[in-house]
Design a protein around this nucleic acid. Structure first.
Lengths: 338, 338
DNA sequence: CTGTTAGCGCCTTCAA
DNA sequence: TTGAAGGCGCTAACAG
């Protein structure tokens, strides 16, 4: 079914059909009624492809992300979609599932599908990314990294500050041997900056950095166990940490579970703290002290920035940092031997 | 930049350009080279809208779901996207955020955008849904419900069996007063069937159903606390449950946390069990006994069914039930007063 | 081997 | 107030 067939059945021209569909001009009531009846009866819906081709706009935004099954990404994503949907945009979603090399392919896809803009949950930006994006000139907003390389707006997190403040909290509780369960430096904003915050807090407190207190793995639960186990099995008991700072929530949950199953009380024997605050952390036993970011808001901000960029409301690149807030719960306490 | 401009610059016709882009016919090496050089230099990429309009195919699948921030949905979604991406499809994602009424709007959108098929994470199917889908005749696969109303294939979960088997596990441990934290009957497959499984197991064991042992709330953590609190505050101590069966994982985590904070040992005083097995449940304290569904596989199966339907490989509707598997962990134990 | 032409379905002047 | 015609960017006959 198309506009031509509709016109034939209604005994009018295709322009008239177009007019009633879009209310774009006056149509005599009788004709309008007749056409509407036929539309209702046939269940006709215009072909958006044809329309989009003509108006050179798709009302679709490409969203590129490495995974969606982490609460943090899911929350940002829902923030993005909330504002985009409210503004009449649809989402073409590319989930690379951590296959970083596929990102370039998806940028091309977005361009070929002529999306009106792109939200990019960045993990690592290469020169190829930059060249490609420059070439295709699509409105772009980066989430989780600087947008400088692309000369575009970005929404970032105060990762350094959050990590530093959390370690300072542990220092204030009297802890001196503070372990850190972290991840490699693939993802600049999270892994590097949070680790830097940890080191910076120690440094300012005049505590020497001890490499044996840092355990590097990945973001997943199993590593929280393994990391905690590694730290608590340092040969000299005096070397073992009295507090463990985890770079993200899953590591803390698993570390806390392992500690308890291994006979340590949390926080009486060992404190556990982290960054990121999925609802879960308020319901585990014990509840976990953390630094909270409003991920939904971060996503919504990025979405709004992109809309402003498309509208021309805000042409100049701008960078927003999301603040953290301290959530004191039950997993941190005074240093025992302190 | 378009094919016409390219033709002008290369001094050839647009068909020649098309031929080199698509490798659809022989082109003399010199011309091919010249054209490819210009393409590389301009960064030209064909407009998919025009192509899709012509071939009447978009290589895009619409995915309609109520939310993406639950591990179960996220896992199914990634299963879907894995097989679809592997088969060259892209994803137009509609996240209703539990606004059930928007579903119809998104079905229309999918049709207007001429997606090649739809995966529908169904929560409640109304007559309007059926009428609309019948009218637009798109290949469709339903996830989480019967596809009967649409005469389409579906992937479902053995919710009844999983719930029944879990309650039977508790019965075998000697429990007679088994609480249930559940949700209202909005979502047939999960809420109703799992509750029915609970009742069926009790019935077969000759235990009278006690309404006071069922607490109805929602899927979120806070309700796990409130539900557990309600069950454990029945006036007569003898009425209180010695085991709590939760309809899904979040409720169990929160219930277990609340019990421990309220002075109950899990499982020595009260056992906790549930259905659904996000990785988390292996890392909480205690680890939670549950029935596991392979959600990723469920999604992948749905994706493959849709592809088969589009190819014509499998035209007849078919229904697959995903089996459950028992994960015995640390949150369930013998009935104390046994 | 390459160019010309006719649409895909729709919107938008421009006439009438 | 309505109709005719051109064109969005591309592919696929059909000529040459």
């Amino acid at each position: 079914m198309n506009i031509k067939e509709l016109a034939r059945r209604a005994g009018v021209s295709i322009s008239t059909i177009s007019r009633v569909i879009n209310n774009s001009a006056y149509v005599s009531p009788e004709i309008r009624e007749r056409v509407e009846a036929i539309i209702a009866e046939t269940g006709y819906r215009p072909n958006s492809l044809a329309k989009d081709l003509l108006r050179n706009k798709t009302d679709t935004i490409g969203v590129l992300l490495p995974r969606i099954d982490l609460p943090t990404f899911a929350a940002m994503f829902e923030g993005v979609t909330d504002v985009l949907n409210q503004n009449g945009y649809n989402i073409l979603l590319a989930n690379t599932r951590d296959k970083h090399d596929d990102e370039l392919k998806y940028f091309q896809l977005f361009y070929e599908k002529r999306v009106d803009g792109v939200i990019y949950f960045a993990t690592g930006i290469t020169e190829e990314h930059v060249r490609l994006v420059k070439q295709i000139r699509m409105p772009l907003v980066v989430l989780g990294h600087s947008g400088e390389a692309f000369s575009c707006s970005a929404v970032r997190l105060e990762n350094f500050g959050a990590a530093k403040a959390m370690v300072q909290h542990l220092l204030e509780l009297g802890h001196r041997r503070i372990g850190c369960i972290a991840v490699p430096d693939h993802d600049v904003d999270i892994s590097t900056h949070r680790k830097q915050g940890y080191r910076s807090a120690l440094e300012e407190a005049g505590i020497d950095f001890d490499e044996r207190l840092v355990s590097i793995g990945d973001f997943e639960y199993p590593w929280g166990e393994r990391g905690a186990a590694a730290l608590m099995s340092l040969p000299d008991t005096a070397d073992r940490p009295t507090a463990i700072f985890c770079i993200t929530d899953r590591l803390a949950v698993a570390a806390s579970g392992w500690l308890q199953r291994s006979g340590y009380r949390v926080p009486q024997d060992v404190s556990v703290a982290c960054i990121d605050d999925p609802v879960l952390l308020s319901y585990t036993q014990p509840r976990v002290t953390t630094m909270s970011f409003d991920y939904h808001r971060a996503g919504a901000t990025a979405g709004q920035m992109l809309i402003n960029r498309i509208n021309g409301t805000q042409a100049e690149p701008r960078e927003t940092f999301m603040p953290f807030s301290f959530r004191l719960r039950d997993s941190t306490g005074p240093c025992p031997s302190g």
